[in-house]
Simulated assay, not measured.
Amino acid sequence: MLDVIGLRYHPATAPAPVLADVSLQLTVGSPALVAGRSGSGKTTLLEVICGLAEADAGRFLWQGEALSSRQRRWLCGLVFQFPERHFLGLTVGQELKLGQRRLTAEKAEAVLEQVGLGNLSLQQAPERLSGGQQRRLALAVQLVRDARVLLLDEPTAGLDWTVREEVLQLIADLAKERALLVVTHEPELFRGVVERGWRLEQGTLRPLEAIHSGSLR
């Protein structure tokens, strides 16, 4: 369980805090969601949680133990909205092995199978994959790292409906053994997948109502 308590983030270039006294709890097996408009601070929230940006105030606890920024970078796996922009490997195999020198071909293939890319060659170039395959590869990278907290930034953006449904099912499956947080401007797409949610407005969170049925507001 990851607890985020009293998080505040106010960059010098912003007239007001991007995040102000934000608190939330992420539990294994209970995927959560933060909704908000573009520019509301959703991506910033993920970057601060995973230690890529330094909070001005706040505490982070994993199973009740305080975490430093470095520890959060190991614990959390962040998948950006357009993960293909962050791929560094020339092949799928190289991408999976970044920072994982002892990764065997058998382990890499098993992880690809887990995310629905079992037929993909390790020699395939990531830029030649479809959008849905690139999202799955980005998730596979985090599974190789054994990230205990998955942070997903607009994971269905730009995907057609068929691929979107497949990615949603994958998210539901991955959340069974990990804490998982999705940020999105389309919360209605995650009905039936995500159990709890908040809306981020003016730097603060409020509960997202009717997440299982009816309109999300």
Rank of each mutant, 00 (worst) to 15 (best):
R73H: 08
L61A: 04
R70K: 13
A66E: 15
G89H: 09
P83G: 01
S68N: 10
E84P: 03
R70H: 15
L67R: 01
P83N: 08
L75R: 01
L61Q: 03
W74Y: 14
E65H: 12
L75V: 03
W74P: 02
C76S: 10
H86D: 12
L78H: 07
R73D: 09
F60M: 05
L88C: 13
R85Q: 14
G77N: 05
L88D: 04
C76H: 07
L75F: 00
F87M: 05
R73F: 11
L67E: 02
L61R: 04
A66D: 13
E84N: 10
R85S: 08
Q63I: 06
G89C: 12
L75S: 03
L90M: 15
Q81Y: 05
T91S: 12
R72V: 07
V79W: 01
F80T: 13
R72M: 07
R72H: 08
Q71W: 02
L88A: 11
R85W: 11
F80E: 07
F87A: 01
L88K: 11
F80G: 03
R72I: 09
F87T: 02
L90H: 15
P83M: 05
W62T: 02
T91L: 10
R72P: 04
L61K: 01
H86V: 05
F82D: 13
P83L: 04
L78D: 02
L88H: 08
S69V: 12
Q81W: 06
L61S: 03
L88P: 04
Q63D: 13
T91Q: 07
T91M: 09
R70C: 07
L67W: 02
G64N: 03
F82R: 14
R70N: 11
T91G: 09
R73C: 07
W62A: 00
R72C: 08
S69R: 15
L75W: 00
E65Y: 05
Q81M: 05
S69M: 13
E84T: 09
L75I: 03
C76A: 11
R73A: 10
L78M: 13
L61C: 12
G89I: 09
F80D: 01
L78P: 01
S68R: 11
E65G: 04
F60H: 01
L90R: 15
L75K: 04
L78I: 09
G77T: 03
Q71D: 14
L67P: 00
E84S: 11
G77C: 09
L67N: 03
H86M: 13
G89L: 02
E65Q: 14
R85K: 15
F60W: 01
W74Q: 15
P83D: 00
S69H: 12
R70W: 14
G64K: 03
L88N: 06
Q81P: 06
S69Q: 15
R73Y: 08
Q63C: 06
Q71S: 08
T91Y: 07
S68F: 09
F87Q: 02
